[in-house]
Design a protein around this nucleic acid. Structure first.
Lengths: 219, 219
DNA sequence: GCAGATAATTGCGTGGCACGCACTCTGTCG
DNA sequence: CGACAGAGTGCGTGCCACGCAATTATCTGC
């Protein structure tokens, strides 16, 4: 993965920067487009949703759609990128005194606790994504994005450089992969246990590989 | 990830099934298309390569291209899917008596030993993929494919079911993720050490999390 | 080895999509 | 309030995936 790519992916993570009228409107339109795409996809299946449909439902011109998203898939998966921002924020707020893996685990798990936010819609959303190859690939990009950003945050906390030490990337990859596996497993199973439980278990199981504190040894 | 998806991805992994004239010719055309796509992409950049160009170079009609690959990106990344088959075969050939993680590590590393097969072309290929967002995403699909297939092979060896026990998926994900991180890190760095060295180190570092033998404990 | 079944190649046509460009409208800021 | 940056929009272009049906090549059983 190249520098340019990192930038591309990172830029999709909501910046929530200035709060001028302009940026505010832009955020509204973006969310409207994303919601429109999701709603339509949920009721018809994404293949039967055309970009102009989405634009129309969001009250905007078709051409405008592509000023926000490069594809309808990107629009549907956009909320995942938002969650990334929240996970990162949660991680950064954790004390550096606590074991690294604990910080990571808690940061991730905390973003799923609020009880399947937004009603059962979240579950349908998840199923939609994992059932559509195109959406699922788009989701992979989200995982890749958070992996890189999380690695940066970890490196920052440990005071090492990501391009010299592969430890941060490794730890981030393990955390994200474990989350992804837990998620997919939970989605496909009978789910006699909650997602957060399964998530925690997967993370715990993987966490044993890594030393609790900076005294790691990767190059 | 859904059953249909697993099938889709798995089907891209070369089966090398029957050796009739038919399958043989098909394999030749497939490889010709893949090579053509790669060569053209290397000299012009993938954006400047059109599907008809590839088809022409492979001596086949444009329409035929899509009977083999769904996109030019898929054609360029196809060799990665071939390597998957080899890794899986290598894993299955390892003795069940040896520790699981050792089998996995050796199976993966063994497919990179032959000294950057096919001349320095492999490195250029790798850079091409990691520099192009479209190709890079396609590569993610390959990683996902092998993760699933490897998980199945692991589950088979351990005698558990992938839909009941998430341990195989977890182990597979860790192995593949570590490999991916090592690869990306190696590609972006000065590479004062060989890829296989870095790969082994990453895998070793992660392997500590898992028990050596079936006596695991995941659900 | 031949006839019917099966599968691959190809040409044509269609629907869709990403994006460049130029123009307009609307916030923004001194 | 006036100039400027940036966002929305219409139009046009090039490319692409894929359905369909006809043709040709391979396979299989007798």
């Amino acid at each position: 993965m190249t520098t340019s790519q990192l930038a591309d992916l990172a830029n999709q993570v909501q910046s929530y920067g200035t709060s001028g009228l302009r940026e505010q409107k832009r955020a509204v339109v973006r969310q409207a487009l994303s919601r429109a795409a999701l709603d339509l996809a949920l009721q018809r299946g994404l293949e039967r949703v055309l970009v102009p449909d989405i634009a129309a439902r969001a009250g905007v011109s078709p051409r405008t759609f592509n000023n926000y998203f490069a594809s309808k898939e990107e629009a549907v998966v956009a909320p995942a990128f938002d969650r990334i921002a929240r996970i990162l924020a949660a991680f950064r707020e954790r004390s550096s005194a606590e074991p690294l893996w604990t910080s990571i685990t808690e940061a991730i798990v905390s973003q799923f606790r609020p009880g399947d936010s937004e009603g059962g819609n979240a579950l349908r959303h998840a199923r939609l994504i994992s059932d559509s190859p195109a959406l699922w690939v788009e989701q992979l990009r989200a995982y890749a994005a958070i992996e890189v950003l999380l690695a940066d945050a970890i490196a920052q906390r440990l005071g090492v450089a990501t391009d010299e030490d592969l430890f941060p990337r490794l730890v981030a990859a393990m955390a994200i992969s474990a989350s992804r596996v837990a998620f997919e497993h939970w989605l496909s199973g009978d789910r006699d246990e909650t997602f957060t439980t399964m998530l925690s278990r997967a993370l715990d199981q993987v966490g044993g590989a890594f030393p609790a504190q900076p005294g790691h040894r990767a190059r």
